[in-house]
Each structure stands twice: as structure tokens, then as C-alpha cells.
Computed example of a mutant assay.
Amino acid sequence: MTDQIGSVVAVSARPGHNFSKPVRDAVTLIEGLGVEGDAHLGRTVKHRSRVAVDPSQPNLRQVHLISVELLEEMAGLGFDLAAGDLGENILVRGLDLIDLPRGTRLQIGGTAEIEVTGLRNPCRQIENFRPGLLKPMIGRDAQGRAVLKTGIMGVVLKGGEVRAGDAVVAILPPEPHVRLERV
């Protein structure tokens, strides 16, 4: 696997813990914290189920990215999804996000950089949002392992503004690569 280049399709953020997030002209990534004005901003975990277990654990879910190709795949199954509907902060085109190894660095636009920490866990909120949508969000690979298609999570290494049209360069870590798992 070699470095890859994609592009930002849309950006979204929301201060409250709602499932979907409105599309914005731009979002600002803040080093070590996440997306300015988003409910998941912070050094410690903000996802409500994880806070209930241990509110002091590090926030490995500062930024959520999904590929527009996933939305297109779901449209082919009859699910009409738009940018921000699944709660992602950055919707990208042209990158196979799910197959990126842990530790991949995503350079976005002029200055922003995210380190990929893991996969988003598909949850019942997806089913509540669109009945029947959860099942196709979990596939199987050639070895029969579950493939979680609901995007990837990362932490902000370098801050900066991100907007639609920005390039996204995926810089892979040294081998051996470690497959993404739920975070």
C-alpha cells in the first residue's frame, strides 16, 4: 500500500450530542483537541457511552471521517444520505479510509494533520436514524472478519482550517502496518 491522495467533499460540526451534523463552509481543527465547536472537542473522551465507563480516558475520537463512496454505496441500496447525516466531521472522496493502517497521517489543506486512531463503531443510532441502515454498514472481508464501514476516527496533530475542495494526503506509517480496530 502506498501513500494516497483524496479530497474533502464537505465538513460538518455541531456543539451538541446530536447524531447528524450540519455542513459548514469550513471547520477549524485544533491541535490535541479536535474540531472547534464540535461536541467531541477535548483531550479526554467525549462520546457519552465512553464517558460513562471512564471519563479520564484519552480522546482518540476527536475527528470522524467518512468516505463519500460509502454514501454512494448506501444510495445504491435505497438509503438517501447527505454530508453530515452520519455525524462525520469530514467527508472525503478518493481514499479507502477503512483499509488505512493505524497511525496513518492525513494532511489536509495547507496545515491540518490528523493521525488515524481506529474505526468508528457502527451503533444503534444508525438504525434509529434510518431503519435498516445498520446491517449494510457491517460487511465481511475474505477471511470472514467483520468490516466496519462507518468511517475512521483520528486525533489532531496539527491545527488548521479545512474546507471542501482541500486535498487529503494519506501518509502511511512504516511497516508492519496495523489493521484498524474500533476506538
Rank of each mutant, 00 (worst) to 15 (best):
Leu33Met: 15
Met153Val: 09
Ala10Pro: 02
Gly165Lys: 09
Thr44Pro: 10
Ala52Ile: 04
Glu73Met: 00
His47Glu: 09
Gly87Met: 13
Val8Tyr: 01
Gly154Asn: 06
Ser67Phe: 01
Gln4Arg: 14
Asn89Glu: 05
Val147Ala: 04
Glu161Asp: 15
Gly160Asp: 13
Pro173Leu: 03
Arg50His: 11
Ser12Val: 00
Ala75Lys: 07
Glu69Asn: 05
Asp166Lys: 03
Ala13Met: 11
Thr28Ala: 09
Gly159Pro: 15
Arg102Val: 15
Val168Pro: 05
Asp166Glu: 11
Leu29Tyr: 07
Ala146Leu: 00
Ala167Thr: 12
Arg43Ile: 07
Arg163Lys: 15
Gly154Lys: 05
Leu106Ile: 05
Pro136Glu: 07
Pro174Asn: 07
Ala82Glu: 14
Lys21Met: 06
Ile171His: 13
Arg61His: 12
Thr117Arg: 12
Phe79Met: 01
Gly84Asn: 00
Ile152Gly: 09
Arg102Glu: 15
Val147Gly: 04
Gly132Met: 02
Val169Pro: 06
Val27Ser: 02
Met153Pro: 11
Leu71Tyr: 13
Asp80Met: 01
Gly154Pro: 08
Glu69Phe: 01
Thr117Glu: 15
Asp25His: 05
Gly32Asn: 14
Arg182Ile: 08
Val45Ala: 01
Pro122Val: 03
His177Gln: 12
Thr117Asp: 14
Arg48Val: 11
Gly42His: 04
Gly139Ile: 00
Ala170Ile: 09
Val147Asp: 08
Asn18Gln: 12
Lys135Glu: 08
Arg50Gly: 06
Glu36Trp: 00
Glu115Trp: 12
Leu81Ile: 08
Gln143His: 09
Val63Arg: 02
Gly94Glu: 07
Pro176Trp: 13
Ala170Lys: 12
Ala82Val: 06
Ser49Gly: 03
Arg50Gln: 11
Val35Thr: 03
Asn89Val: 01
Arg48Ile: 13
Ile66Lys: 02
Gly118Pro: 10
Lys21Ser: 04
Val27Trp: 11
Gly110His: 12
Lys135Met: 03
Gln125Cys: 07
Gly34Pro: 02
Leu97His: 02
Val156Pro: 13
Arg105Lys: 11
